[in-house]
Amino acid sequence: MATKKFMYLNRRSSFGTVYAIESLEVVLIAAAFEQDVSLAFMDDGVYQIVEGQNSDGIGMKNFSKTFHALGDYDINKLYVSKESLEERGLTESDLMPLVYEDEDDDWAEKPSIKIVTNDELTAIMSEQDVCLSF
């Protein structure tokens, strides 16, 4: 099967609507297709990967833990909008430390999250074959 570049655009926070969790469900399935997958977190989507989410009080599953599994699924390109973080008073240290093991570098643990400016994101988006919005 041909390899295409798939980007998942995540612009909403975790629990208010179903989009965040059902986006993650697609991403996990997509991993089996060995495509070039990247995730973009923009606008309130950056809240999907902030550290310290606890959904016990709202009776919903805390799927933020699942982001830690993405590295094992070989999904390691998570682009986070610098401007979106700044607008919300957040920094990289507010995000979960998501990592993957680099097969080509003796399984060294490396960060999956990359903070990108709008211009960098524009360049990344321009390369995509398929953009799925959630």
Partner: peptide, 20 residues
């Protein structure tokens, strides 16, 4: 059917358009 059908559609089509 499963979510794989969405990914497969993305792979096999020339364009995938999202309405939401």
């Amino acid at each position: 059917s499963g979510l794989g059908q969405l990914i497969e559609a993305g792979i096999q089509s020339d364009r995938l358009v999202v309405f939401g």
